[in-house]
């Protein structure tokens, strides 16, 4: 097995020889890809309206709604792509999409 430095691959420092065969790479690797840079609009949570129902946490396709110790939620802006699903499903309309 080739020893893979994911950070180097992300930084573009690789050749066909140093990439793992067929991309069979040890996970987690997606942690190195900061997909938050793709975002045009960001979700902003109005914590005063949030009832901690966790529907946004369930629906988020990128696991970018983080559960906090108080049972509430925050957005992980490093990875949130700004799809807006959380704002759409929030029954309290506590999440607004705001232009970056």
């Amino acid at each position: 097995m080739v020893d893979i430095d994911v950070k180097k691959i992300v930084a573009g420092e690789f050749s066909w020889k140093t990439l793992p065969p067929a991309g069979m790479i040890e996970i987690p690797t997606s942690i190195e890809y900061k997909t938050g840079t793709w975002r045009i609009e960001k979700p902003v949570i109005d914590q005063s309206k949030c009832t901690k129902c966790l529907i946004c946490w369930i629906y988020c396709p990128d696991m970018s709604i983080k559960r906090m110790f108080d049972g509430g939620v925050e957005v992980d802006y490093e990875f949130c792509k700004g799809c807006g699903i959380c704002a759409e499903v929030c029954p309290q309309k506590a999440i607004k999409m705001v232009e970056e």
């Binding site: 067929a22 991309g23 996970i27």
Partner: peptide
């Protein structure tokens, strides 16, 4: 665990 059948965009596809 390994990743199988990964997606490779223009920056890596050609190397594979």
């Amino acid at each position: 665990p390994l990743a199988y059948g990964v997606m490779a965009l223009p920056d890596t596809y050609m190397e594979f």
